[in-house]
Simulated scan of single mutants.
Amino acid sequence: MAPFSLMAAGVSWLAKSFTVFSSTSVLTRCTSVLPASYINPVKCLSSQASGPPKRPLNGYMRFVLQQRPIMARQNPEIKSVDIIRKIAQQWRTLSPEQKQPFQEASLRAREQFTLDLQGYKAQLTPAQLQQQVLEKRQRLAKRKAIRQKRELTNLGKPKRPRTPFNIFMSEHFEEARGTTTPAKMKSLRDDWRNLFNHQKQVYIQLAEDDKIRYKNEMKSWEDHMVEIGREDLVRGKTLSKKKKTDAKAPSAKKATKKAKAKTTKKTAAKGKSKTTKVTTKSSSTKTV
Rank of each mutant, 00 (worst) to 15 (best):
F168C: 10
S95T: 01
V11M: 11
T24L: 06
S50C: 02
Y214T: 03
P158D: 10
S251P: 08
F113V: 03
L195R: 15
K184Q: 03
N40H: 08
G51E: 12
Q67G: 09
E111C: 06
K241L: 10
D246Q: 05
K121G: 08
A183P: 09
E171G: 08
C44S: 07
K254H: 04
K266T: 05
P35I: 03
H198F: 10
E77M: 11
L94D: 00
I167H: 11
K86S: 14
A36R: 13
Q148D: 01
V288C: 01
A259C: 06
G119R: 15
Q128G: 12
V20L: 13
Q74P: 11
E104R: 08
K219M: 03
R137F: 10
E97N: 10
D209E: 06
R162F: 02
W91R: 04
T163R: 03
T263D: 11
V202A: 06
P164M: 08
M185D: 11
R235S: 07
F196G: 08
L94Y: 00
A88R: 04
V226Q: 09
L6S: 08
Y214E: 09
A261M: 13
F102C: 08
R189A: 12
K16W: 14
T276R: 13
D209A: 06
S25H: 01
S22C: 11
A249R: 05
S46K: 05
P76A: 09
K157P: 07
Q130V: 06
P161Q: 04
S95A: 00
Q74A: 15
L94P: 05
K149Q: 09
R230E: 07
K157Q: 07
L107T: 15
S220M: 06
R235W: 02
T180M: 15
L34K: 03
V133S: 10
S50A: 04
Q205R: 09
K253A: 10
Q89I: 05
K86H: 14
A255E: 00
T287G: 02
L14N: 02
R160Y: 06
W91S: 05
G156T: 07
S284Y: 03
K254R: 11
M218Q: 07
C44L: 03
E174K: 08
A145F: 05
K136C: 07
R85A: 03
Q205V: 05
W221S: 00
K99E: 00
Q118H: 13
T93R: 04
K211I: 02
K99A: 01
